[in-house]
């Protein structure tokens, strides 16, 4: 499987980019889905794209801390203003999908992310 970049995910899953659009060349090496920040801190891996429906700015800190490739907010929700601002500052990519976690994970997996 060739390298997969964030921009590939944005195109394939029709994601909207809320923050960090200058960082879409980052490569994605895996996926992690969780809505519990402590779980993500403990168990996600560097380069993972993180699927969550949390909107709070803490998600940016977690993604930054674990060197995640980016965040996909699911279920058609939009990040809070403070989250977008913080993500811009720290260069964290925040994307949104109208689909729930289950299908976003399914489609990413189908693309080859984390396989």
């Amino acid at each position: 499987m060739s390298e997969i970049k964030l921009v590939d995910l944005v195109q394939a899953l029709d994601l909207t980019v809320s923050a960090g659009s200058q960082e879409l060349e980052k490569s994605v090496t895996g996926g992690y889905a969780s809505d519990l920040l402590s779980d993500v801190i403990a168990n996600s891996k560097e380069g993972d794209v993180w699927l969550t429906l949390q909107l709070h700015q803490n998600i940016v800190a977690v993604a930054f801390l674990n060197n995640l490739a980016g965040i996909i907010i699911v279920n058609g929700r939009q990040p809070e203003e403070a989250t977008i601002q913080k993500a811009q500052e720290q260069g964290v990519v925040v994307m949104c999908s109208a689909f729930p976690t289950y299908e976003v994970a399914g489609r990413l997996y189908h693309l080859g992310v984390g396989r």
């Binding site: 689909f99 399914g106 990413l108 997996y109």
Partner: peptide, 15 residues
């Protein structure tokens, strides 16, 4: 959770 979703979706279980 990610991989479990991925495998089930791949195997045809819809969302």
């Amino acid at each position: 959770m990610y991989e479990a979703c991925g495998r089930l979706y791949q195997a045809g279980l819809p969302g």
